[in-house]
Computed example of a mutant assay.
Amino acid sequence: MTIYRFLTGPDDASFCHRVTEALSKGWSLYGSPSLTFDAAQGRSICGQAITKDVFGVAYDKDMKLGEQ
Results as ranks from 00 to 15, higher is better:
residue 32 S to G: 08
residue 50 I to Y: 01
residue 38 D to F: 03
residue 38 D to M: 09
residue 49 A to P: 04
residue 8 T to M: 04
residue 27 W to K: 03
residue 37 F to A: 13
residue 22 A to Q: 10
residue 50 I to G: 00
residue 60 D to T: 14
residue 46 C to E: 03
residue 2 T to F: 07
residue 45 I to A: 08
residue 7 L to D: 01
residue 30 Y to R: 11
residue 51 T to L: 01
residue 31 G to R: 01
residue 33 P to D: 03
residue 32 S to V: 07
residue 53 D to S: 07
residue 49 A to L: 02
residue 45 I to E: 11
residue 58 A to R: 05
residue 67 E to M: 09
residue 19 V to Y: 00
residue 51 T to I: 14
residue 64 K to C: 06
residue 54 V to K: 04
residue 22 A to D: 03
residue 8 T to V: 15
residue 46 C to Y: 07
residue 7 L to F: 11
residue 52 K to W: 01
residue 38 D to A: 06
residue 43 R to S: 01
residue 11 D to T: 05
residue 54 V to D: 03
residue 65 L to H: 12
residue 41 Q to A: 14
residue 58 A to G: 11
residue 20 T to V: 15
residue 5 R to K: 05
residue 6 F to R: 01
residue 2 T to C: 05
residue 40 A to P: 12
residue 17 H to I: 00
residue 45 I to L: 12
residue 20 T to N: 13
residue 4 Y to K: 10
residue 44 S to L: 12
residue 32 S to T: 06
residue 59 Y to N: 07
residue 61 K to Q: 08
residue 65 L to V: 15
residue 56 G to M: 11
residue 9 G to Y: 11
residue 51 T to V: 13
residue 19 V to T: 07
residue 47 G to V: 06
residue 30 Y to M: 10
residue 53 D to A: 09
residue 66 G to C: 02
residue 2 T to E: 15
residue 40 A to Q: 14
residue 49 A to S: 07
residue 65 L to P: 09
residue 44 S to E: 07
residue 29 L to E: 07
residue 19 V to C: 01
residue 54 V to S: 02
residue 9 G to L: 15
residue 50 I to P: 00
residue 60 D to S: 08
residue 12 D to L: 10
